[in-house]
């Protein structure tokens, strides 16, 4: 029996190893030689697709520079940078987490706001609970999922409750926007509160229900080059690309608003 389990584990390890080996040869195909400069960008998870596009453009315009991303929750990224993670640029999903970083004096120059995002209701494609307004979320029997107040999207949801005077009774307070979207697109929940850009990125897996009060709560995204960067000039150029025309058009196409 024991050998069988061992066999199972070995098989699993081999699968994992094979997968990672594949990934390595893929990225190596781009010609990763030692002469390239690698710029490491820590960015909020909600920026994943847009920043990858901006990164590709940046690499085209800067031969010899390779941009690597680490996407995650903004507060996770801040604590990683505080613990000495080698990052050159930090882009946060809210100003609160950027404040944490500047309070620790890890920035080079002042953070710049480069985008903003508002909340939107997401429902399964067939909108089973007939949600048409923010107030509909409080109807009895409607299963609403929001982010927990501890994370930026949840803090925005709490503000939205006080702006509208509607008190939500969520069936779950998730750790991230992706978790909320997962519960909605699988049809477990009748509605969820996420960002406009998340609804756009989810395509036809969810239906977006815009509501007029949404512009009262705006989440601002700041970006900054980091003090401990070994390539501070390139880091600053990346920040300029994001705040400049290239970055702004890509962000706008994904549904982000101007800061």
């Amino acid at each position: 029996m024991r050998t069988r389990i061992l066999g199972l584990l070995v098989a699993a390890l081999m699968v994992a190893g094979g997968a990672s080996a594949c990934g390595r040869s893929d990225s190596g195909g781009g010609g990763g030689s030692g002469s390239k400069t690698t710029l490491t960008v820590f960015a909020a998870a909600s920026l994943t697709s847009t920043f990858q596009k901006i990164g590709d453009k940046f690499e085209d315009e800067h031969p010899g520079v390779k941009v690597e991303f680490s996407f995650g929750g903004s507060s996770d990224l801040v604590s990683q940078i505080q613990q000495g993670a080698p990052a050159d640029v930090f882009a946060s999903a809210d100003t609160a987490n950027m404040d944490k970083l500047t309070a620790a004096n890890l920035q080079a120059g002042d953070p710049k706001n480069f985008a903003s995002n508002t909340l939107e209701i997401a429902t399964p494609p067939d909108n089973p609970a007939d949600i048409a307004s923010f107030a509909d979320l409080a109807k009895p029997g409607v299963k609403v999922v929001v982010c927990a107040p501890e994370v930026p999207c949840g803090a925005a949801a709490v503000k939205m409750e006080s702006v509208t005077g509607v008190t939500l009774k969520p069936v779950s307070e998730e750790e991230s926007v992706t978790d909320v979207l997962g519960k909605v697109s699988s049809g477990e929940a009748d509605a969820g509160l996420v960002y406009v850009t998340d609804v756009a990125a989810a395509g036809d897996k969810v239906k977006g229900v815009p509501f007029p009060e949404s512009n009262k709560v705006v989440n601002t995204y700041p970006i900054v080059a980091l003090k401990d960067s070994k390539h501070s000039d390139i880091a600053q150029e990346f920040v300029d690309t994001v705040t400049g025309e290239t970055g702004q058009s890509i962000l706008a196409a994904a549904g982000f608003a101007k800061p």
């Binding site: 507060s75 996770d76 999922v145 927990a148 501890e150 994370v151 969520p170 069936v171 779950s172 307070e173 998730e174 750790e175 978790d179 519960k183």
Partner: peptide, 18 residues
């Protein structure tokens, strides 16, 4: 999911408090 007292177990609470 994750809701205090109903589905938010200790590991989930730790993850959130962080």
């Amino acid at each position: 999911g994750s809701l205090q007292g109903r589905t938010r177990t200790l590991p989930l609470e730790i993850y959130l408090q962080r």
